[in-house]
Amino acid sequence: MSNIPDIFDTDMTTLIKDTYDLATAIRTRRKQLKMTQTYLASMMGVSRQLIGELEKGTPGVNVGLALDVCRELGLKLGYEDISDDQTA
């Protein structure tokens, strides 16, 4: 588990609808923590280019890596069953 403190003062929830939304959340959180892509990549044991691809929302980036990065950045992911939602 990461030792990065939670810097949000309020409970903020963002709906992730696609890879672009996930990429935006990861990039935003990394910048809030004042981390470079290079630093995050070294923490994760991957290349800076791979973090860049993840932050662009490039299809095909390893989902395991995306989840690991979210965990390291202190992003909590969840899901909501929308099967009864009339807007789906």
Rank of each mutant, 00 (worst) to 15 (best):
T19L: 15
G52S: 11
T28K: 13
G78Y: 02
R29N: 00
C70L: 08
L40E: 03
E80K: 07
S83H: 06
I7S: 04
Y79Q: 01
G45S: 10
G52W: 01
T87R: 10
T24F: 11
R29K: 08
G57K: 10
Q32G: 09
L75I: 15
S83Q: 09
D18F: 10
D11S: 01
M44Q: 13
I82S: 05
G74C: 01
I7A: 00
E53Y: 11
M12Y: 14
G52Y: 11
D21W: 02
K31S: 08
M1A: 15
T36W: 06
I51Q: 04
I7P: 00
L65D: 03
K76T: 08
S42T: 05
S42G: 02
M44D: 08
D85I: 09
L40D: 06
G45F: 13
I7W: 06
K76G: 05
L50D: 07
D18N: 15
T28L: 11
E72D: 01
M12D: 15
L67I: 10
K34F: 00
M1R: 08
Q37T: 10
T36F: 07
N3F: 09
I82T: 03
K17Y: 03
L50T: 13
G60Q: 01
I51D: 06
T24R: 12
I7G: 04
Q49V: 14
T87H: 10
V61H: 03
M35E: 08
A88S: 09
R48C: 12
G64S: 08
L40A: 11
A66C: 08
T38E: 15
S47H: 00
A23W: 08
A23P: 09
K76A: 07
L33I: 06
S42Y: 11
D6A: 09
I82E: 03
I51C: 02
R27Y: 10
G52H: 10
K76P: 07
M12C: 06
K34T: 00
V69C: 14
M44N: 00
L15E: 15
A66P: 03
L67C: 09
C70P: 05
R71I: 15
K56E: 06
Q86G: 01
R29S: 02
K17Q: 12
N3G: 03
E55R: 03
A88P: 03
L15P: 00
